[in-house]
């Protein structure tokens, strides 16, 4: 599926919830089920700076697609990562670079996009895109 389609799917899923409680409970569930990163990639080098909770991201090229695995020590953060990974992982780097992130707003998680340094979402998205740029260069 294309990034846009996946994002649309996530937006539809979240539209079933009536209030923040249900949204957050769902995110917490997602967080708990996040496929964990291989322990060997949980290094300081792979920590995303700018998050209050620790976030590790690892990227690997499989054929022409970029696959992300990640983890965090905070569960809500993990939920957010799970959503991001679902939208961006297993995609061509060029498509990741070009993808927009408005769906975050649409699913009611806008507060996590604030430039407040406590929220790591902005840094997380930046990091995913940086990986995509790096691997795209490699592919060229």
């Amino acid at each position: 599926m294309e990034i846009k389609e996946i994002q649309q799917e996530i937006v539809e899923e979240f539209s079933m919830f009536d209030d923040w409680m249900q949204r957050y409970e769902y995110m917490i569930e997602l967080g708990k089920s996040l496929p964990l990163i291989d322990e060997k990639y949980k290094t300081d080098d792979n920590i995303i700076k700018g998050c209050q909770s620790k976030v590790w991201v690892h990227a690997e090229l499989e054929n022409d697609k970029l696959v992300f695995t990640a983890d965090s020590d905070a569960i809500i953060t993990k939920g957010i990562i799970a959503i991001l990974i679902r939208a961006f992982s297993d995609q061509k780097p060029q498509n990741i670079i070009e993808a927009d992130t408005e769906f975050i707003d649409e699913i009611g998680l806008k507060e996590h996009l604030s430039p407040n340094r406590a929220n790591g979402l902005v840094s997380m998205i930046k990091q995913l895109k940086l990986y995509a740029v790096a691997y795209q260069t490699q592919l060229n």
Binding site: W20, Y24, S53, D73, I76, T77, A118
Partner: peptide
């Protein structure tokens, strides 16, 4: 067993 960030996020809600 809970990260402070998670508690802060729910409290804000």
């Amino acid at each position: 067993g809970i990260h402070p960030y998670d508690i802060g996020t729910i409290l804000d809600k």
